[in-house]
Amino acid sequence: MNSKSAVFTLTKKLARDLGFMETVYASKSNKCKHPMLQPFKYLIVIDFESTCWEQNTDGKQPEIIEFPAVLLNLRTGMIEEEFHQYVLPVENPILSDFCVNFTGIEQEAVENGVPLKTCLSLFGSWIKEVSEKRRLVFHINQKGSSAENACTFVTWSDWDLSVCLHNECTRKQLYMPEILYQWTDLRAIYRKFYKRRPKGLRGALSELGLQFEGREHSGLCDARNTALLAWRMLQDGAVLTVTKGLKTKRQASKMPHLKTDI
């Protein structure tokens, strides 16, 4: 060791001993904080678009017209799989001008879509495929411990599953897959973790310095951006847990199989 190195080493040791030096650890932006605390290794983000009207004076009920889902790997932050299907509305088959402008979904797209019952069947087949490929286990067991490839569903607010899909399935006497009876409301976790109430998904992204990518109120774009937000929240130290569950005869975590014949 030369004289300069010896002096530098001695000075650094003295500064540390006197409390003048602080050790700073650089965080890696592509890793989530507290990975051992995360109960899930995968998320499936869902964001429906539905029929809507500027003034709904007749009490019309929303029907799903776009059904997207994206699979987010929480080890890498990458979206690995996507499901996307336009859905044919039958209660109010003609989209309002407001709906077309708001969602960007044209009448032709929904007319070429499939009924909700068929869409749920296709979605069930997709879930089965990605589950078998990655050995996914949905939700967590009753004791709270998580499986190696534990997965849950994520939405921005409870509206998609608790209101939109649940009510439409009830009205149309369709089977709502019990696997969708539990989910994580990312908006609720965002408000609690950051102690802020953002103005929508775009507002939440903006607050964290993120840019919304794509067209707002496109279901697939919204799902991708929600996944982006979830990944950033994990990097900041947020822990994603199941926040909502609907009453069901069987707990989704105990389901030995996924029902796809719907």
Rank of each mutant, 00 (worst) to 15 (best):
P177I: 08
M78N: 12
T152H: 11
K199L: 03
P62G: 11
N30V: 07
L201I: 08
L240Y: 01
T243R: 00
L88G: 00
N2Q: 04
P62E: 05
P115K: 14
F48W: 05
A188G: 05
F138H: 04
E111Y: 12
W156C: 05
N225H: 02
L74D: 05
H34E: 08
L246P: 03
P177K: 10
C99M: 06
L201Q: 04
D158C: 09
C169K: 10
K244N: 11
M1Q: 14
N2K: 10
R134L: 12
T243E: 05
K143S: 10
V45S: 01
H84T: 04
Q173P: 03
K195D: 04
M21S: 10
C221P: 04
A6G: 09
Q173R: 15
K4T: 13
S5D: 12
V114H: 03
W53A: 11
I94N: 06
L240N: 02
K195A: 14
E106W: 10
Q211H: 08
T243K: 02
Y86W: 10
S125E: 12
R224Y: 05
T155N: 08
S253F: 15
V70I: 03
M1V: 08
K199C: 05
R187M: 04
E148N: 05
N225P: 05
I189L: 12
L74T: 15
V137E: 06
T57C: 03
A223V: 01
T76M: 12
N30R: 08
V45G: 00
Q211N: 15
E91Q: 12
S145V: 13
T260F: 00
S50W: 02
Q211V: 15
I79T: 15
D58P: 02
I262P: 00
K195L: 05
Q55C: 08
G124L: 13
S125F: 04
E54W: 08
H84F: 14
L229T: 00
I189P: 02
I94W: 04
S253I: 05
T103K: 04
T241K: 00
G144W: 11
T170L: 13
T103D: 03
D236E: 15
G209K: 01
C52I: 14
P89K: 10
S3A: 06
S146H: 13
K199A: 06
M233W: 02
S125D: 11
A204G: 07
L71I: 09
L246M: 07
T170V: 08
T11G: 05
N141E: 04
N225M: 01
G245E: 04
P62L: 09
F153C: 02
K249R: 11
V239H: 03
D58H: 11
V7N: 07
